[in-house]
Simulated assay, not measured.
Amino acid sequence: MTAEPRYSATRRRFLARSVAAGGLLCAPAVLRGQGGAAWRPYFPDLGRGAILCDTASRRLSVWSVGGAVHRAYPVTLGPEPIRTGRSEIAARIAGPSWAPSPAMRRRHPDWPGFVPPGPGNPLGRHALYLSWRFHRIHGRPRHGAPSPPAGCIALCDAAMAELFALTGEGMPVVLV
């Protein structure tokens, strides 16, 4: 006999809203225009904007330059423990290509060595490359797509397009 998963009240409300909205568990902008001072423990100011990803709750928050706009999104994490700490956006790429890291190639020798931009790309339509090598925040081409690569944080493509528009190179990123 299998036990039914137990979700927190917050998670149950999120799932209910997601299903009511058409079953999209990656609904963009779960919170709009909220966020108060949640950034203060992690960033001195919002002069360059900021991204905060809470890996335990699988939630990414972004504040635009100057803090005028705040959005929060549910995220999917890769299969391995994700690195935490301070980073920044090193590059913003629309139509990214993808190549597995050397460690991924050793674990999955059958994977392709390179995937160009387009429908089969696991990074979706937009990617934010962090200053840590092989770590990215990127889209997922479709709901139910395979987990993101190790070291990655993925959002559905619609949410990623919105996040991409709010960010810039050099924006600080904190993963906790």
Rank of each mutant, 00 (worst) to 15 (best):
C53T: 15
C53L: 11
D54K: 02
D54Y: 06
T55F: 07
T55D: 13
A56C: 11
A56P: 05
A56Q: 14
A56V: 14
S57D: 13
S57Q: 11
S57C: 09
S57V: 11
R58M: 14
R58F: 12
R59D: 13
R59W: 05
R59C: 15
L60H: 09
L60N: 03
L60S: 13
L60W: 04
L60M: 11
S61L: 05
S61R: 11
S61D: 11
S61T: 15
S61A: 15
V62R: 05
V62L: 12
V62D: 06
V62Q: 08
W63E: 14
W63P: 10
W63Y: 15
S64E: 08
S64V: 05
S64K: 01
V65E: 14
G66P: 01
G66W: 03
G66T: 10
G66C: 10
G67H: 08
G67K: 09
G67C: 11
A68D: 10
A68N: 04
A68H: 02
A68M: 04
V69P: 03
H70V: 08
H70N: 13
R71N: 08
A72Q: 12
A72Y: 01
A72R: 07
A72H: 02
V75H: 05
V75K: 01
V75A: 12
T76S: 13
T76P: 03
L77A: 09
G78R: 00
P79N: 09
P79R: 07
P79E: 12
P79F: 02
E80I: 04
E80K: 06
P81F: 01
I82D: 06
I82T: 10
R83N: 10
R83M: 09
R83A: 15
R83V: 13
R83S: 14
T84S: 13
T84Q: 07
G85T: 02
G85R: 00
G85I: 03
G85W: 01
R86Y: 05
R86N: 10
R86H: 08
S87K: 00
S87D: 07
E88M: 06
E88L: 05
I89R: 00
I89K: 00
A90F: 06
A90K: 05
A90C: 02
A91N: 07
A91W: 00
R92N: 09
A94L: 02
A94I: 00
A94M: 03
A94S: 13
G95Y: 01
G95H: 03
G95V: 01
G95N: 04
G95R: 01
G95W: 02
G95P: 03
P96F: 01
P96I: 03
P96V: 07
P96E: 05
P96Q: 03
S97P: 02
S97H: 10
W98C: 07
W98E: 05
W98Y: 12
W98R: 01
W98F: 09
A99K: 02
A99C: 05
A99E: 11
A99T: 07
A99S: 15
